[in-house]
Amino acid sequence: MPVPVVPADPAWPTVAAADRRADPFDPDASARTELDRQVRAAVDLGLATLHGWTAADLAAAVVPLHRVVDDLPASTVPPQDHVPFVLVLDGGTTRANAAVAATRRGPRPG
């Protein structure tokens, strides 16, 4: 069965940001630092804009999570083996195609 391919719209903010890279995960960083890194990545890669948020909007939206991540218990999994949590911007399926352009596998976008 063929897989439908949706061409990337150059107007999508995630496509416009295709040349950008997020800061890499640092297994030695605190949970708060990791949350801040994920927020920066969402902004830098165009995901916040895709959802209609400014950088300030997204930063304000995650303020309640600061206390949550500050209170996370120490992980029992080796830090090089996982990211302790992932910030998810729920756009449902309506923004799924545009969001794919922000994904990365090493240096490759999409």
Score class of each variant (00 low, 15 high):
G46F: 11
P64H: 06
A56L: 10
R104Q: 04
V62Q: 01
H51T: 11
V68Y: 10
T94C: 03
A56N: 14
T93W: 06
R67H: 02
V68I: 13
D57R: 12
A102V: 09
N97W: 07
L89D: 05
V86A: 13
P79K: 00
V86G: 12
D70M: 01
A61N: 10
R67W: 04
G92N: 05
A60E: 08
W53T: 14
A99Y: 04
L89Q: 04
A96G: 08
D44W: 11
P84A: 01
A60Q: 06
L89A: 12
L50Y: 13
G106T: 02
T49K: 07
V77N: 00
T103W: 03
T49D: 15
G92P: 08
A55V: 13
T76M: 02
A41P: 14
L45T: 12
D90C: 01
R105L: 04
A96I: 00
A42T: 13
D81C: 01
H82E: 11
A55Q: 14
L72H: 00
D57T: 08
R104P: 10
T49P: 12
L87H: 09
R105G: 00
A98Y: 00
D81P: 03
L50P: 00
L47W: 08
P84G: 05
L58N: 15
G46S: 09
A101H: 01
V77M: 03
L58T: 15
G106I: 03
T93S: 09
P73V: 02
D44T: 15
A60P: 02
A74P: 11
A60M: 06
V68R: 05
D44R: 15
V62K: 08
V100F: 08
G46C: 13
H51P: 06
D71M: 05
V69R: 09
A61Y: 11
A55W: 07
L89I: 06
T76D: 09
V62N: 02
A101S: 03
A60Y: 03
G92Y: 03
A99C: 03
A102I: 06
A59L: 09
G91L: 02
G46N: 13
A96M: 04
T76A: 09
D71E: 13
R95E: 04
V83Q: 15
V63S: 14
G91N: 05
T54P: 14
T54Y: 11
A55N: 09
A99L: 07
R104D: 06
F85E: 06
L45P: 06
T49G: 12
V43M: 12
H82P: 12
A56W: 05
D71V: 03
H82S: 10
L45I: 13
D90S: 05
A99D: 07
A56T: 15
L89R: 07
R105F: 01
F85T: 11
V69I: 09
V100I: 02
A60G: 06
G46P: 10
A55C: 08
L65V: 07
D44Y: 14
V43S: 11
F85G: 04
A102Q: 05
V43N: 10
A59G: 09
R67A: 14
L72N: 00
A56D: 15
T93C: 04
S75R: 02
R105T: 03
R105M: 01
N97S: 07
D71F: 00
H66V: 01
A102S: 12
D44G: 15
L65K: 05
T93E: 11
V86M: 11
P78Y: 02
A99E: 08
N97V: 11
R95M: 03
A56F: 04
G52R: 08
A55L: 05
D44E: 15
G46W: 15
T76W: 01
G106W: 09
V43P: 07
